[in-house]
Nucleic acid binder design. Structure first.
Lengths: 198, 198
DNA sequence: TTTGGCATGTAATCCGTTACATGATTAG
DNA sequence: CTAATCATGTAACGGATTACATGCCAAA
């Protein structure tokens, strides 16, 4: 049998699992945007649980346009040119189809936990400082999310998608609260075993 | 200029950030092991927050041995040959050094939240079923972790690393509890808006 | 003895980040 | 006028998964 008859895995429905395309499609339902605008839009809305880099965004935009899921248009403002994209009807279909599929269980990878797990092979003071940092960062992020939450609550009734957005924020808050509690608890446990230097 | 004059960025201290090497080193502090054994050991201990595949494990083992951080030895049992590795003194040093460095903040990526965020572009029944699945899986994983926790508590006093291990389990439990609560809460919110079909 | 699982590995490929490069505006 | 920042892009690279390949062992 000749290899690659009809090139089975090239790029049809058998994408490995690049969710980047769908973030792009989803963000374009909020209105046309350039790559730069898209990146800012992503960072401002889902940034706390999803990020995209240009190196990913630009190729993805090119391929989405090839597939007619988005439509690009050259725009010249002043002397500056850029390319704005809008989602097409088939783009909306593709998005809706993806939304209906169950999310792939994503493999967790937590470097902090690795360092906790192997902590007895290293210095305990280092572990302690990692935990302190962790705790402070969780606290700070929690404050950010709380203020985002308040801000969104104010604009509630207007947009039918607001409730869903609030749900993602709520997820972040509950998760960070747990994380914050855990790091505090871990610090207490650590100090119980090896009482602080005082 | 000839390429790779002294190979500036080849592989010294400028590793991008492969934590795989350190999981391997850490696991080898529990005793010598082959690639296969290592994989099982990883799955059984840190599996709920860290996994490694063979495609990653084998090259990493080869490179760690090149760097003299581990020492391999051919073993023949029956007619079967395998390669067992043990950690060297410099391997322990490298591990300890890595443990002291603060963990890199890892970019979150949550596909479920993406689907929640864009839910209004898809079917709400699909979203609901994703949430139900999510809730059930969290519940199941929670049960697993609770039983792991009990099992470890029993063997507490023996191993000085047990407390650290318990901390990672505790992290999993707190996180999953939050996740479980969130998905239940989200389901309630969803049913409030679009009362179920009954 | 054939099936399936255990054990060891290799190869291809893709995802995603980082670093680099460049022109256009705006501020000082 | 120069520096900084905005905006748009490209190239290189490494990490990680998936799929493939092979041989030994045990059980039916």
């Amino acid at each position: 049998m000749p290899p690659n008859e009809e090139a089975p895995g090239r790029r049809g429905s058998s994408e490995r699992r690049s969710r980047t395309r769908f973030v792009v499609l989803g963000m374009l339902t909020y209105g046309p945007a350039s790559a730069y605008t898209l990146r800012k839009r992503i960072a401002a809305s889902v940034g706390f649980f999803w990020q995209e880099s240009y190196g990913q965004l630009f190729p993805t935009l090119a391929r989405l346009e090839e597939d007619r899921l988005i439509q690009g248009q050259e725009v010249t403002a002043g002397r500056r040119r850029r390319r704005d994209y809008e989602i097409t009807a088939s783009g909306r279909d593709a998005l809706a189809h993806w939304l209906d599929e169950p999310p792939m269980p994503q493999p967790e990878r937590n470097e902090l936990l690795l360092k906790v797990f192997f902590a007895s092979e290293g210095g305990l003071e280092a572990l302690r400082s990692h935990l302190v940092d962790t705790n402070a960062r969780a606290r700070a992020q929690l404050d950010v999310l709380h203020s985002i939450d308040s801000g969104l609550q104010a604009a509630f009734a207007e947009d039918p998608r607001m409730p869903f957005r609030l749900l993602t924020v709520r997820y972040g808050i509950l998760g960070l609260e747990a994380f914050h509690r855990w790091s505090a608890e871990a610090l207490r446990a650590l100090d119980d075993r090896s009482p602080s230097v005082s």
